[in-house]
Amino acid sequence: MFYPLAGKLIPWFAVAAAMLTIIGMYVGFFMAPTDAQQGEGYRIIFLHVPVSWMSMFIYLVMAFWAAIGLAFNNRLAAMMASALAPTGAMFTFLSLWTGALWGKPMWGTWWVWDARLTSELILLFLYIGFMALQSAVDEPRRADKAGAVLALVGVVNIPIIYFSVQWWNTLHQGASVSLTQAPSMAALMLIGMLLMALASWMYTVAIVLMRVRCIILEREQHAGWLDELKEVKQ
């Protein structure tokens, strides 16, 4: 039942994502004023902040689905968790990439040991660990459950890691200008970022639904109902 429903939903979310990105970019590049200190370079914020939000948010959603998959022994929930991981890792990578590209003109170095960037880096390792574990286990059922346990252990650790990195960061050098508290948030900037965040949300839903369908195709081959699918008949 889920398979055809997901199939119908994907185009809608994809179109919504594309439209929101265009509007968000328009606001970000054409309506938002030039920043006093950072000139035009600050416009990376319209990508860096939404992407960083998404990387954290996807991990939470992944842990949520993992918990449901573990608690109710529900295969679909577990598949959702493993479908979310690659997109989450991709967003974390983008967050690090845009953070570095933003740090270079502003602070002159590609990598700033800022508390947020460092915890993004560790989040990336958590994602990679999750995917590595899931691919190492051959039997899908155990892969789902083992991944779920790791995701839950990870989600309990994220606040601790973030707090300890924050603590560590203030110990060494003064809290450098953290990336997300940009200079006074003009309303337009905020709208631009929210639009881009919504756009990345729509994109995530679309891409994750597509991946879940792939996982279903890969795993449910023994089940008979796959054969009646029209794609299979062609």
Partner: peptide, 12 residues
């Protein structure tokens, strides 16, 4: 992009 072109377009 006010001289920051490579960075902005690099990330996008």
């Amino acid at each position: 992009m006010g001289g920051y072109g490579q960075y902005v377009w690099g990330s996008f």
